[in-house]
Structures are given as C-alpha cells and as structure tokens.
Nucleic acid binder design. Structure first.
Length: 577
RNA sequence: GAUUCUGUAGCUCAGUCGGUAGAGCACAUCACUUUUAAUGAUGGGGUCUUGGGUUCGAAUCCCAACAGAAUCACCA
C-alpha cells in the first residue's frame, strides 16, 4: 500500500517512468568506477593551470543544485568528501543532431538528490571556481523524495537550514546529506574513538568484548532494562556496566583490558542522557588511581591535539584547556571551597541537616554516600569548568573501590569534571574479596531501605576475587559526553546518529486488497485517499451522493482523466457491501 | 512524571481584532552558452498536527490527545 504522495513525489515517479522509456535504467546494477574525489580535486588543483582534456576524472555523488543556462548548465555534485561544481554543455553530451539526452534527460528528468556518475576534466570557470567540464553523465540512482535545500553563501551563512529536531533525529540520513556541520560532528566522533584506541594500543592493552546480556546487572548503580531468555527461561538484564567482567579478565592474567561498551539504563532522557550510551572502560594491573589520573590527563590532551592541534578547545562561550596536568581537589575540599562547610567529620544525621540548610531535596532512603553525592552535585559540579579531578570519595558511595591508603572512611577514587559534567570515573579497584563481600552486603541493606539502584551481589565475581586479583586501577569514560565536549554540542542527541525517540505514529490505512474486496477499482483508490478517506469504515460512513460529486472534482484536480469515474450505483455498492 | 513553549506548503517562516491562507527557497512551463544562497516571466502545491467545544463564522479563543523542545524531578 502506497502512502499518499505529494506533488513532487508524483512528479519524480513520472520522471522515473520516462527515464525507463528512454532506455535508461534508473537503478543500474553494475559498479561505477570512481577515480577521484571532490576534496582531492580541489586540494590538488593549481590555480591558473590550463585545462587538460586528456586527464579524465570520474566521480560519483548526489546532484545538489542546478543552474541551467540554456544549452549550458552548472550543477553541484556532492560526494563523500564534499561538493564540486560541474559544467555540462549540450553539445558535449550530444555531439549528434539528437539533443534529447541533454534537453530531456539532463534538464528535465534529473533532480536534486539523484545519484549520478560523471566523467570530465578539471578546469576553472571565468569566475575562478574549480569545476569539472562533464563529457559523460550517468544516472546511478533516482531519488523519489525532495531533499530540503540548504544554501550557504560565501560568508558561511546558511539559508533554510533544517533545524526541526524531530526531523533531524528521525531522518538523520537527510540531516547528514544536507547539513555538512552535522557530518563533521560524526567524523570527529570517530576520530576521538580512534585517538583513544591508538593510545591504549600503544601500551599494548587488549581490546575485548564482554556480555551485554547479563544475568546480574553489576558494576554500577542504575536501573536496568530487563528482558527474557526463552530457552533458559530466565530473566536477563541489558548491561549497565561491564566493570565486573573486565576485572575477571584481570584475574585471568591480562595486564590491561579495555572495551568500548554500549551500556543501557532505564532512566530519564534529556540532553545529557540517552537510554543507550557508550562507555570506555579500562583496567590496568599493578596500577593505582594516582597513576590513572596522569594517564587520563595525557589521554585527553592527546585527543585535543589529534583533533585540533592545540590543547585549547572552544565549548560554547568558554575555552577549555586540556593541557596536562589538571587541577586536583578532594571531594571534601571541593565542598568546603564552594559551601564553606567542612563535612568530613559529619554523620548521616548531620549531613541530612546540611542538605536541609542548603535546600537540597534528598530521598528518604538516602544513605551517607548518597547525601554527600547530592551536596557535591548541587553545590560544586557546575563551578568546575576547567578539567578538575575530584578525588577521595566516601566509602559509602563507592562499593567497588579500595579503601584509601591513609584516610579513614574514604576510597581511592576520582572523577574528572569538565564544563560542569562528569567525564570519567576511576579508582584503585577493590581486590580484597572479604571487604568486597561486606560492601555488597551494605548495598543489600540500601536495597532493603528502598534504593532500587543499589547493587546486587554477584557471587561469581566474588569467587573470582577469591582466586586473587592483582592491584588494579580502572576507569570508565563517558564517550558520548567526551564527544559533546570536543565537538561543542550541547545535547547528546547531536552526537548520536540515531538518538532514542518515541516511535512515529503510523496512520492505519486500508490496504489495496481491502478496497478491492468491497468492489473499489484499484485506480480509484488514490482519489479516495486524496479525499482523506483512509479506511473502509470511513468510506462506509459517507453519503454516496456527496462522494460521487467529490470524486469527480478530485479526479479533475489530480488530472486522472484516463480513470473512469464510478457510477452512483457503484458507490452505493461499496457502501452496502 | 510536573510545568512552560512550539506544531501553518517538500524546507525555513509570516499570518493583525475571529471574517475565503501568505512569502522565500524547492517544484512545473517558457526564455537564456560561465553562473556563485538569490537570472527573468508565469503557474501548481495546504484536512493550518488530531479530536471535541464556543461562534453565523476558528489557523486564530477554550478543552483534550499526539509529537518535539526547554526547565525541574528521577538519574551518570
């Protein structure tokens, strides 16, 4: 069943038929040999060189604009690397008397958005623009829907840019074709991932894969997605973190392991949260969190250099310097710095009082760790614009972290805050199996108090620790947030190709067979649809006399003169069937 | 989940006090041999998101639904 087509869609389908009638296949099967890209042509052309008609370039892409000037035309071809102007002359395409290929095929039957392959030679127009003088043009794929046309003038100001987020996110493919800046964000995203991977590989750490479907969702405090395995008849969870699996691999004897992992959390969505997101987790044996902090600042500095060849990165109004070393503050120092309150000696009751005084709402079931986390999040985070390591978290909010070597009640943990947002979370990993079991039991108590995010006990993980895990430091990087930072995007949806959206509402239209069953001729269906009669139930409700009149009018409007109108008896037949 | 804002042509947007729906680009027809977001002339294209209500009359006012955004809540 075909959806209702607008004028331009109908027109392009008609052109498709005409193209076939000319003996041209609009969707040819053969490969198209390409020997040049627009970016290279523009980069390598030496201004002032006379055209070399023997040096034929062959390239392929989408037509993005036409400027037809009678028997000569300009158009723009967009390939994967950019755009170039092409110059098409009637007498080049049609050396013989028959000018149909230019006059009809090129001028009338090609549209913006069509994929074509061209052969030609590079030259400069009188205005100086590097262009391709086309000697041959072939259709590679016809486009049936009009692209929104975005134009950019010489100052880089764009006109009619597609800005509607719903359109951009639901039809990212169109957004990418039409908005080059969007494409650039995703190129940078991949470049960031490559930069990180290169760095980790240079230390010979091993890239691994661990389960996404987990019987026990561990390694983080978050609400999981739940699914079901039919053969085993057990619930399975989509992973919220891969930490516990990577540590098992350290137990197994690897020196360093890492994974770019998709994690899934069944929580709210906003411009910094998507239900699925990418985290890089890295674990290195025989290291501690002090080593990891240095490793982290070097890594971020490298990303900045790889991307921009400088450590200064523009994020919104601010310039952020990724030049190592970064500032370090303990969590208690940070809270004292921004609130003037020293909470280091306070118990749960007193912390609750502090929250009340600072007007911070906290859940009734919150434990000490949660309370401190709330205070920090509310009072400090947004002040930390330049990269800052916050270190030494209270033990209650870090159930997988080794106790601090010298400060009681704290753990060896840091988070890196940049532009008011957490970018990564790292610690000296807890490898004392007995301590770990006690920490899990604390989490169970929190669960009993109503914290539905507290961790489950993973018995196999504890067993692994009992076999012995070397001292290890681990870190998790929020790769999407890092990408947001380095591409200057303020929402996570803009650094994900396909952010999560509510499914599009689909109009339940009657199928062709449904119409045929009640006796409607197939050729009449478009007329009924254009009259907005989309279901059989609607059709049966209409007044046959009115429909008879309406159909006549609509047939004329749609220029379907060849279609024979139904008689009034025919219409009554449908309605009474 | 709560509040606020938004939804008009393929795209970007106007639309006055409630009185027959507008522009630019895109599209079509004609003209044009080097143009630079934008050549000229002419033309086609709309269930004004959907459903109710008020009204002689609703894109416009009211209610609800749907979708998106922002803020908050929840949460890395």
């Amino acid at each position: 069943m075909q959806a209702i087509l607008n004028e331009q869609e109908i027109l392009r389908r008609e052109k498709l038929t005409q193209i076939r009638q000319m003996g041209i296949e609009p969707y040819p099967a053969e490969l198209y040999p390409v020997n040049a890209y627009t970016k290279d042509i523009k980069k390598n052309f030496v201004p002032g060189t006379p055209p070399d008609t023997n040096n034929i370039v062959q390239l392929a892409g989408r037509l993005m604009s036409f400027r037809i000037q009678g028997s000569a035309s300009f158009a723009e071809l967009q390939d994967s690397t950019g755009r170039i102007q092409i110059y098409v002359r009637r007498d080049d395409l049609c050396p013989s008397e028959n000018k149909e290929y230019y006059n009809t095929f090129f001028k009338k039957l090609l549209d913006i958005g069509d994929f074509v392959g061209i052969k030609g030679y590079v030259f400069q127009t009188q205005v100086g623009e590097i262009s391709i003088h086309v000697t041959e043009i072939n259709l590679l794929a016809k486009s049936l829907k009009a692209l929104p046309i975005v134009k950019t003038d010489e100052n880089g100001v764009s006109y009619d840019e597609v800005t509607d987020p719903e359109f951009k996110y639901r039809r990212r493919y169109v957004d990418l074709v039409v908005n080059p800046k969007v494409k650039d964000v995703f190129l940078k995203r991949t470049k960031i991932f490559q930069s990180v991977r290169d760095y980790l590989n240079s230390f010979e750490y091993l890239e691994v894969e661990t389960p996404i479907l987990q019987a026990i969702p561990g390694g983080a405090t978050a609400r999981p997605f739940i699914t079901h395995h039919n053969a085993l008849d057990i619930p399975l969870y989509m992973r919220i973190a891969n930490e516990l699996y990577l540590k098992r691999l350290i137990v197994g004897g690897f020196e360093g392991v890492y994974e770019f992992a998709k994690d899934f959390r069944n929580e709210g969505m906003d411009r910094t949260h998507n239900p699925e997101f990418t985290v890089l987790e890295l674990y290195v044996a025989y290291k501690d969190y002090i080593w990891m902090a240095e490793f982290t600042e070097n890594l971020l500095q490298k990303i900045a250099m790889d991307l921009y060849k400088t450590t200064d990165v523009q994020v919104g109004e601010k310039t952020i310097s990724f030049k190592a070393p970064f500032q370090r503050l303990t969590m208690y120092e940070a809270i004292e710095k921004y609130t003037g309150i020293d909470i280091s000696q306070k118990n749960e009751e007193e912390l609750r009082e502090v929250c009340k005084n600072l007007k911070i709402d906290v859940p009734a079931h919150a434990g000490k760790g949660k309370l401190i986390d709330e205070i920090f999040g509310e009072t400090c985070e947004h002040h930390l614009i330049q990269p800052t390591f916050i270190t030494d978290y209270p033990v209650e909010m870090s159930p997988l972290t080794k106790k601090h070597r010298s400060k009681a009640g704290l753990t060896e943990r840091f988070e890196l805050i940049v532009n008011g947002k957490e970018i990564c979370n790292a610690y000296s990993e807890l490898n004392d199996p007995i301590d770990q079991r006690e920490r899990f039991e604390e989490q169970m108590k929190l669960q009993a108090r109503g914290d539905d995010e507290a961790m489950f006990i993973d018995q196999d993980f504890l067993r692994a620790l009992e076999y012995g895990m070397p001292p290890t430091s681990g870190i998790g990087f929020g790769m999407d947030r890092i990408t947001m930072l380095f591409t200057n995007q303020s929402s996570i949806q803009d650094v994900l190709f396909f952010p999560q959206m509510r499914p599009e509402k689909i109009i339940e239209m009657a199928k062709t067979e449904d119409y045929l069953t009640i006796g409607v001729r197939e050729e009449l269906i478009p007329i009924l649809q254009k009259l907005n009669i989309m279901t059989i139930a609607e059709l049966k409700k209409v007044n046959p006399n009115k429909l008879f009149g309406d159909m006549g009018g609509m047939r004329k409007k749609l220029k379907l003169d060849q279609v024979k109108l139904p008689t009034k008896e025919e219409i009554e037949g449908w309605i009474n069937s």
